[in-house]
Write a protein that binds this DNA or RNA. Structure first.
Lengths: 150, 150
DNA sequence: CCATCAGGGTTCCCTGAAGGAACTTCGCCT
DNA sequence: AGGCGAAGTTCCTTCAGGGAACCCTGATGG
């Protein structure tokens, strides 16, 4: 995607974008997460160009969020999330929650999440890791950190 | 960014990407959120091309996540988050948390969040909106919803 | 034992978006 | 009247995405 290399930016958002910010990457991650794990399956599911899919998968593997595994004696591989990648799914769940709320379409969401603990179809809510209270845009003061140009 | 129009995909992740998935958009949102709200300021802070910044801001305004306001009698404008945009900040906080954890760099994060409720510099954790228990990748079953091709 | 098949890519060309710098516009300021 | 500064706009060049065709490898099958 970006000509500009975000990883130089000393910003966690920018660096995260450098990992999954390229076009298609979040959708590829979603597919891998829900079990669409083979090249052909992902390509067919997303309608993505094979060239771009190759590039994205290589990049995700390089970044350590996805793992390439042989599943046959023949040269056949599938892709699985690493621990690092599994935590990126948080991002997908937040995108899903926001999209469901603000952009709800006719066809409805393609992925529903049933929460093991309560058994309900639910969505995520953000809490403070420290005190457990809700933590959204106006529940915090954003403070310029060391890497800020502001 | 994408030639392919994600908004057609009947997928909340894809539709969300259609709003803030283009290169730079999340970083622009971050700037607006932390108070870097004028065209020149954002351009200088990010080093983004003026052309692309214009396009992104127009798109964000069209999507209703950012609002353009005059701040002078002269033709001067600044940009502010709408309610829809403020909820997108959730996404930035999750990206920050993930990036801080997995991609920590020398310079450290550019934005720190101090939580009003507890006064601590903290980060977000995802909870089930229904039962309040932790909700991450392997705490849920992703179920194919109506829009899925799987 | 050669032909076919299927998965997983790679190569090629074409188009369109990002980068970058120069130019424009509008209204204040002196 | 001339200059300034914010906020764009225009133009050109370069590079990444789309799409289709091609390639390679190890079964399988007649």
């Amino acid at each position: 995607m970006q000509r500009t290399n975000f990883s130089e930016m000393a910003c966690s958002i920018a660096r995260t974008l450098d990992v999954i910010g390229e076009p298609w990457s979040p959708l590829i991650l979603r597919d891998v997460y829900v079990g669409i794990s083979r090249f052909e399956q992902i390509q067919a599911d997303l309608g993505i160009s094979r060239k771009v899919l190759t590039e994205r998968l290589n990049h995700l593997v390089d970044q350590g969020v996805v793992e390439r595994r042989p599943y046959d004696n023949r040269p056949r591989y599938d892709y699985h999330l690493t621990a690092k990648g599994a935590e990126l799914v948080d991002l997908l769940m937040v995108m899903t929650a926001w999209g469901d709320k603000w952009l709800a379409g006719e066809a409805g969401p393609p992925v529903l999440y049933r929460h093991h603990a309560c058994g309900e179809i639910s969505h995520v809510d953000l809490r403070c890791a420290h005190c457990g209270e809700p933590m959204h845009a106006y529940d915090v003061d954003p403070l310029p950190g060391p890497g800020s140009a502001a």
